[in-house]
Amino acid sequence: MKDKRNQKLVIDSKLLEHVASLAKITVNEGEVKKYVVQLEEIIEYFRQLDKIDTLNIIPTYQVIDNTTNVLREDVIESSLSQKEALAQAKRTHKGYFLVEGVLNER
């Protein structure tokens, strides 16, 4: 058995900041500190699964009974109007959603 104190931590602040940025979550210094400790504890708890033999076990990602497609008749139904679809947006322009620029250089 490995001594718990010698086990390398799974998450450090650098990795946490990287993961947060992938998920477009901005974290400040205090949050990084706090989350690293909390997530490390949670991930440590997950370790109990390591000892279960799952070699020939098929993973389960959903629990519905049928896995065939459900299709509907190809008929036109009412949907949101353009006005309704845009109504909740903070910024619109000529009937479009306005977003931050994605490309910086021309």
Binding site: I52, I57, I58
Partner: peptide
């Protein structure tokens, strides 16, 4: 190591 492992143990629970 994490997500897929959990999905397999989910099968055992079911």
């Amino acid at each position: 190591k994490y997500y897929q492992k959990a999905a397999k143990v989910r099968t055992l629970i079911i």
